[in-house]
């Protein structure tokens, strides 16, 4: 522990300090450099751009907060914020528990466990552009899903209506992504000590109880990390919206990032797009800091 934390031993001299931290820093420096050069520099250029009217050919002009004012006065902005929040919420409700359930289920399989894992990961192998083209056909009013519904004697389902469009996209994305999440959960599940199950079974705990009190708590950390990552990822989603619905119908699937890319690439307004990016950055940072504070606070109490 003392090695670990490096509690200062009465102000070590610079040389001792260097030696004390030598390996730690040596291992870290390349990564720090890479992050600086390929992430932080572009990111902060992006923030700087949000205060400029950006024109790469005739030069940028400083405009102060004008870009932010423009962005915030656009009614589409609020639609996009609302849609993104709804999307994040629904994605958690519908998509988040799936990989956990699937991981637990698959690791219980007696046969074909390997095959199930392989198959679950297959969608991640299909290039995304191909995948969207396929799903567009699946969701078609006369596509395979509706053919199947009609075959069962059910009425056709309009996947692209204002009410259903968001849901349709979430199902698609859940389908696309849950293979990789499942793999990560399975890796964690194998690490749960088996004797715990043995012991609790002897104590008379049923299967549900074992899942609830042993399995889930032991992968709680991972679940929280992946939940955080999913929230971040869904807050930034736009690819499926762009290719499947282009934000429609009537902006029902216009997400924050889709609006950002529209500003940048359709309206050529990089200043506004950067401003939107900066706002999102600040909001996400504040949210995470608050979450971390709350969690620490909760743990303490």
């Amino acid at each position: 522990m003392e090695l670990q934390l490096g509690t200062p031993i009465a102000k070590p001299g610079l040389r001792r300090k260097t030696r004390w931290y030598f390996w730690g820093l040596l291992f870290l420096i390349p990564e720090i450099l890479i992050f600086f050069l390929f992430l932080w520099v572009p990111i902060f250029k992006g923030i700087v751009y949000s205060f400029y009217s950006v024109d790469f050919v005739s030069g940028n002009v400083f405009v102060g907060w004008k870009n932010f004012a423009d962005v915030l006065s656009n009614p589409d902005y609020y639609t996009a914020v609302k849609n993104t929040l709804v999307y994040m919420g629904l994605a958690v409700l519908i998509g988040f528990w799936m990989p956990i359930a699937m991981a637990i289920a698959v690791s219980e399989l007696k046969w074909f466990q390997g095959s199930a894992r392989v198959i679950g990961y297959l969608p991640s192998i299909i290039p995304a552009i191909v995948l969207y083209a396929m799903w567009k056909w699946f969701y078609d009013p006369i596509g395979p899903i509706n053919s199947f519904l009609n075959f069962l004697g059910l009425p056709s389902f309009d996947f692209y209506s204002r009410e259903h469009a968001v849901l349709s996209l979430i199902i698609l994305e859940t389908w696309q992504n849950f293979g990789s999440a499942t793999l990560i959960y399975i890796a964690a599940l194998t690490a749960v000590p088996k004797d715990l199950y043995e012991a609790s079974e002897l104590d008379g705990a049923g299967v549900w109880a074992r899942i609830r009190y042993i399995t889930l708590p032991s992968i709680k950390g991972l679940i929280l990390v992946l939940l955080g990552l999913q929230l971040i990822a869904t807050s930034q989603s736009f690819q499926s919206q762009l290719t499947m619905t282009n934000g429609g119908p009537d902006n029902a699937t216009l997400t924050y990032l889709l609006l950002t890319t529209r500003e940048a690439f359709n309206n050529f307004n990089f200043g506004n797009a950067s401003a939107m990016g900066s706002i999102m950055f600040v909001v996400l940072v504040v949210c995470s800091v608050v979450t971390i504070k709350l969690r620490r606070g909760g743990d303490g109490g």
């Binding site: 992050f35 572009p42 250029k45 930034q236 924050y256 990089f270 990016g277 999102m280 950055f281 995470s288």
Partner: peptide
Amino acid sequence: TLLIPAASYLIP
């Protein structure tokens, strides 16, 4: 850096 949307720094 996880919190920063990639589109905001695509061009830079």
